[in-house]
Nucleic acid binder design. Structure first.
Lengths: 180, 180
DNA sequence: GGAGTCAATTTACACCGTGTAAAGTACTGA
DNA sequence: TCAGTACTTTACACGGTGTAAATTGACTCC
């Protein structure tokens, strides 16, 4: 239950990789969609989110939290990328997958909203943004797709992604921060 | 050859909508992938790009061109969205579709690079960006996915998309422009 | 040791969408 | 009239998901 990753993977591949018959997989998981959802849940348990989010949680200021979150996210996405692509493809047709995806993305959105709210509280939110709009844009900037676009298509190393996105987010959302 | 749009559409749907047998479609287009490519070409002819890009072409300054391009793009995407989704899904498996997509996106990338180049020429590019990195980020900000995220998922009207993206792009790339 | 249970296996098939093949029909124009 | 063309219907191959049934094998309980 470890090495899977992505949409081109058929049930027989999963079965083969697990050294088990195709039907055994159906017995255990029910369907391809259910398998994905189970994989997501398993990933949650195994990826140590609590540890990874320590810096984020420790940062109470809006600006610091924004920076910490981008850093967490940039390093987190590569590890969930395979399953994320599979979910993204399957959520078109499967309701349970769509729900699992929306649930995950909802958590990210909440984080974005929280960050924007703190910037506002600190008087640091750049003018011109409503809280919701800023959260929408931050969430969009940090989407898996944008990560794919920069890291996979344009070939950015993860470190550059993190650095530039931190800078971009600061410029976009933090009042008076164009110098660097 | 007009009303199609998107990935859930099967060959029989296309045929039915055209009032023709499924095989006739195969006779004309060869395969689903070829049909998509043909649809893209047809769209190019019919969408009046030259007219739509007039403001963009007329704007020679980096800042103005950036603004004009975001406006063009925001209004253009809704019309290509259906076929774009289908291409996006099919490019995973079909080489010709992938080539057609990459060709289109290449054009957009060139436009982004041109804009960033003009900003730099005008001395208006915000500090901290290399030309390539700024083009990469602008291109990513303007991706179909980001448009979907804001307009379809977050429910933004197109006008708001255009306005906020213009503002965001200005903040991100134009030196000294946080006030508005 | 023998019976029952439970998991996993093999084999087979239904369903769907893409794509191919073949035979038939109807309209066109030299 | 005949050839060509455009389209039709019917049929099937292929690949992937998902279901069903009969079979094997191991482990437990008495």
């Amino acid at each position: 239950m470890e090495e899977r990753s992505g949409q081109g993977v058929r049930m027989r591949d999963v079965a083969g990789a697990a050294g088990v018959s195709r039907q055994a997989v159906y017995d255990h998981f029910g369907s391809r969609a259910d398998l994905m959802v189970a994989t997501v849940r398993h990933g949650d348990e195994v990826l140590g989110l609590d540890g990874r989010l320590r810096h984020y949680r420790a940062a109470t200021g809006g600006t610091e939290r924004l920076e910490a979150f981008v850093e967490f996210w940039g390093n987190y996405v590569p590890e969930i990328h395979g399953i994320a692509r599979a979910l993204l493809a399957a959520r078109e047709t499967d309701e349970a997958v769509a729900a699992a995806w929306d649930d995950r993305m909802g958590v990210v959105y909440e984080a974005c909203h929280d960050i924007v709210g703190r910037l506002h509280r600190d008087g640091a939110l750049a003018s011109g943004w409503s809280l919701d709009e800023a959260a929408d844009v931050l969430w969009t900037m940090l989407s898996i797709h944008s990560w794919e676009s920069l890291v996979l298509e344009r070939g950015w190393p993860v470190g550059r992604y993190v650095g530039r996105m931190q800078e971009l987010a600061r410029r976009a959302f933090v009042r008076g921060s164009e110098g660097a």
